[in-house]
Design a protein around this nucleic acid. Sequence first.
DNA 1: GTCGTCATGTAACGTGTTACATGATTTC
DNA 2: GAAATCATGTAACACGTTACATGACGAC
Lengths: 195, 195
Amino acid sequence: MMPRVNRTRFAVLGMLMSGPRSGYDLKKDFEEQISNFWSESLGQIYPTLYRLKEEKLVTVTVKRQQGRPERKVYRITKRGEEVFREWLALPAEPIRWRNELLLKVFFGSAMQPTDVLRHIEQFQTSELETQSLYQHFANEIESRDVSPERRLYWRLALSSGRHINQARLDWCREATDEIRRFTAEPERNRKKSHE
Amino acid sequence: MMPRVNRTRFAVLGMLMSGPRSGYDLKKDFEEQISNFWSESLGQIYPTLYRLKEEKLVTVTVKRQQGRPERKVYRITKRGEEVFREWLALPAEPIRWRNELLLKVFFGSAMQPTDVLRHIEQFQTSELETQSLYQHFANEIESRDVSPERRLYWRLALSSGRHINQARLDWCREATDEIRRFTAEPERNRKKSHE
DNA sequence: GTCGTCATGTAACGTGTTACATGATTTC
DNA sequence: GAAATCATGTAACACGTTACATGACGAC
């Protein structure tokens, strides 16, 4: 069997490339920086860090703090950097699409058109929220003290999200219009495929 | 624990709403009709059909054929339709993003700019392939004998893919330009964040 | 002769989420 | 007094893919 590469490993290693962090920090960074196109849960991060440590791709330092739990700070090793760069050079795997909203729209004829419109409206609302979240991300990028090169790539990754977010919003409007137009045309509505 | 709804069940039930099919047929339909935004493997489909049969949401008829293996044709039951419609009315779950290309672009500063450009180019190539696949899908939709309503929703689901595909292609061009501009500006390149 | 299609199914394995477990401190 | 934050970790479970297993037929 040819198991798919474990991407969590590389997402974690990549984050550690820009400085040592704890598992908890990593979770926050994933959310604040790339939740746009990537997510990891703590239930994935902690075991992954353990395995990376076993493989000597990272090292750990335990930091005791007063009034707070201990922090395990992970630092990437030379070997870790090598392994990360090897993965980075490989072509990216295609995205596996599973869009539940589109599945429901596709099966739309099993609902009332108003129900389909409601689904699209909900989707539109969440995409509008995403849009304002992206503005927040944009501010985040510009306020952080990172190299111009890192900023460039961070901006580009965000920009992709913005393009797609806009495309989704455009589609919402188009879809809403077309469904409304369809329901407003009674003669076309009545016509069946076998006629 | 609150397990996430098994969407394969509903994708299968939804397909069976428009007529009885075998597991093999379902796989083909998923690919030819909605591979755009949904995928299922046979290793998921067969066990799902078995479970749906146990739950009496579908019935089976074995069709013997000469010179070919038996076909098990599944038909959705009244109860199956009810269960499907209940799911259909629920709000769609948000998409869980995991875009490996964007992850690699985000970590771009660990590569040479030319390597990032190569990744984007590969992505662009695959998106151009997708674009022509969508043209094929569009023809497929118009040639099939389905009701105007089903055709409407099928078109809309495809249209979403086309919007996003175009957005990705636009982003590829933008990203390529910006990386080229960055590498062409030597003084900006040299400047570090701590200066 | 090899490959693709038709057709079903199981086994092995990896991926990923959520709940549970623990417990102090800070904020509302 | 409740809830969020800090902080780590395990266990249970669902999701999903690929490989394996079987076997006939038709095309190149």
